[in-house]
């Protein structure tokens, strides 16, 4: 598997451009990569994929110094690690290249309501309740995301959760920037419907 990103969204660094301390990548992009991992493999397995992503990135660093957009580079590695993870587990990937469509029968996504706060007991009773509630709400969102068609899900996750611009999103999805933008908008619209199914609200946004 190549760690080198390719596609229109990745530009070469100017000669002599400084490569930042790896710590900067971890603190700046760690949160987005974790959201992406959770969207791709579920909350339980996301930790392993996050670790594998940053270990692979660190091993390749700084030979990857010609990468200008480190966030897109990390997202590409994370996506590949998630595909590896699903392959190892004998499942199909949630988010993948356009050539690897997500099988309708597979169910690799396993949202775990409450798991985010279940081991957080030091905050006292209120803290635990809040954490569990937050976890349950998060679980609902993960579950709703899992119901989106792959391209819409990919566009929403790569753009809104991983923070990539649409040029980089389209490179990962194998479509055009306009299509990626449209898929993200459609995905968010579908997500709103899924999250408030009982209220017959107008969707004019």
């Amino acid at each position: 598997m190549s760690l080198e990103p390719s596609g229109p969204g990745h530009k070469q660094a100017a000669p002599g451009a400084a490569v930042p301390p790896f710590e900067v990548l971890v603190t700046q992009h760690g949160p987005a990569v974790l959201r992406l991992c959770r969207a791709m493999v579920g909350v339980l397995d996301a930790d392993d994929v996050w670790q594998e992503t940053f270990m692979a990135a660190l091993r390749a660093y700084p030979s990857s110094g010609n990468v200008r957009n480190f966030q897109a580079w990390l997202v590409t590695i994370a996506r590949n690690k998630a595909v590896d993870h699903h392959r190892k587990a004998g499942r199909l990937p949630l988010l993948s290249d356009s050539s690897m469509e997500f099988g309708a029968g597979a169910a690799p996504f396993r949202p775990v309501p409450g798991s985010c706060g279940s081991d957080d007991v030091q905050g006292g009773g209120d803290g635990v309740v809040r954490a569990v509630e937050a976890g349950e709400t998060a679980g609902l969102v993960w579950a709703a995301l899992a119901k989106l068609p792959p391209t819409q899900r990919g566009a929403v996750v790569y753009h809104h959760l991983a923070g990539l611009n649409y040029a980089d999103v389209s490179a990962l999805l194998g479509n055009s920037e306009a299509a990626a933008r449209r898929a993200a908008a459609d995905g968010m619209k579908a997500l709103r419907t899924l999250l408030v199914p009982s209220e017959g609200m107008e969707h004019d946004g």
Binding site: Q51, N69, C116, A134, T137
Partner: peptide
């Protein structure tokens, strides 16, 4: 990287990150 607006619907999956990131960061280091 330009800053992205986070849709309100997605806020719950972003909120619970800090504790997990500290734990992951320590294990990674």
């Amino acid at each position: 990287m330009d800053e992205h607006e986070l849709p309100a619907e997605l806020a719950p999956v972003v909120a619970a990150d800090a504790e997990a990131l500290n734990r992951l960061g320590a294990a990674f280091r």
